[in-house]
Design a protein around this nucleic acid. Structure first.
Length: 157
DNA sequence: GCCAACGTTGGC
DNA sequence: GCCAACGTTGGC
């Protein structure tokens, strides 16, 4: 199975690149995805070793700040069963999990943060969902060419 | 804070 | 199964 490439959005309030920079190799639990299309990617499509563009949303300058890899593939999202979690889903049932998590390992920051405006300015990236208006999907497949170009824009091919 | 775009819910 | 109302995302 060839390696796949993804873009995963994280709100700035959930994780910051500065924190991750100081913890190379650290593993994050990807919790709280409550969208069926994104769920299907987590559950069915992601494979260990797939590479991830780490995107920060909902902040002053959204964009891609680093690269991660899938460290553990889809497993039921514990936060769906945790009544104290903001992601608790009362309709979710442990016997028939509805929501899934993956774990990602932080690999490296890009030398240069690649803001969304730069992604939009690159003609070769016009097919990326993240540059398209109204596209809110928090986990998106990207092509190898797109992945490589974003890394290159970030100062490291 | 605004609001466009989209997903989900629920009445019928 | 339609679709209006509502809630959320997320750029600006």
């Amino acid at each position: 199975m060839p390696k796949k490439y993804w873009l995963m959005k994280c709100e700035e309030s959930e994780c910051t690149f500065n924190e991750l920079k100081e913890r190379p190799g650290s593993v994050g639990h990807w919790r709280g995805v409550r969208n069926y299309q994104a769920r299907n990617f987590l559950r069915d499509e992601m494979a260990k070793g797939d590479l991830v563009l780490f995107y920060q949303s909902n902040c002053e300058t959204p964009g891609v700040g680093g690269v991660a890899e899938i460290a553990r593939t889809g497993y039921p999202d514990p936060s769906a069963f945790d009544t104290s979690s903001r992601y608790f889903d009362e309709k979710s049932n442990p016997d028939e999990p509805r929501w899934f998590s993956v774990d990602v390992r932080w690999k490296r920051p890009l030398k240069r943060f690649v803001p969304l405006s730069d992604l939009k300015a690159a003609a070769e990236l016009s097919e990326m969902k993240v540059v398209q208006r109204g596209q809110r999907l928090s986990i998106q497949p990207v092509t190898k060419a797109e992945f490589d170009l974003v890394c290159k824009l970030g100062g490291r091919a």
